[in-house]
């Protein structure tokens, strides 16, 4: 039930991202809602859950817009895993921590994405505009991260209360 709800949320966010992105476009870049969701999952539920969400998100993106399977699938799952693993011993109470981890995660994602895109000959020239795209998009992701983190946290508490914890 819990997994289904998270998968459904991820697919819903991906649909919003791919269809309403012309509204989300700010300063020539757009935030990556499903990636932020995967990162928040990694922070709250650990690296494995985060990597799974990243994997699913990347898989759907590759299928819908890619020319082969793997580019987004690998990079998004690895990024979520790194963020989840790296934040294991960090107290995530303050919003600033969520925002900082999302910023770092977005940066790692974009860097790995460009490396993989370069290795698979999908992109060669984008390094020139790396920082001009990565910094604003990471900042945008950072701004929306508290909202998504709060949503995931609430969902987690809801499932704990109604399904798992018995009094």
């Amino acid at each position: 039930m819990r997994t289904l709800a998270y998968v459904f949320t991820l697919v819903a966010l991906l649909l919003v991202q791919t269809t309403l992105s012309n509204i989300l476009w700010i300063f020539g870049v757009k935030p990556d809602l499903p990636l932020v969701f995967a990162l928040c999952m990694a922070m709250i539920k650990g690296e494995k859950a985060g990597a799974l969400m990243g994997f699913l998100n990347g898989f759907l993106e590759d299928i819908l817009f890619g020319r082969f399977l793997g580019l987004s699938t690998i990079v998004k799952s690895v990024t979520a895993y790194i963020v989840g693993y790296g934040s294991r011993n960090i107290y995530k109470g303050p919003v600033i921590i969520t925002m900082a981890l999302t910023f770092i995660g977005s940066f790692i994602f974009n860097f790995l994405f460009m490396v993989f895109a370069f290795l698979t000959r999908e992109a060669a020239q984008s390094w020139y505009s790396f920082f001009s795209i990565v910094i604003p998009s990471a900042l945008l992701n950072m701004v929306i991260s508290p909202l998504i983190y709060h949503g995931v946290f609430k969902m987690e508490r809801f499932f704990d209360f109604y399904f798992d914890i018995k009094y």
Binding site: E61, F65, A123, S137
Partner: peptide, 14 residues
């Protein structure tokens, strides 16, 4: 047009 590539690197539409 029913969807756009969510990434900031590529420009693909469906």
């Amino acid at each position: 047009v029913i969807a756009r590539d969510p990434s900031n690197w590529f420009n693909v539409i469906l």
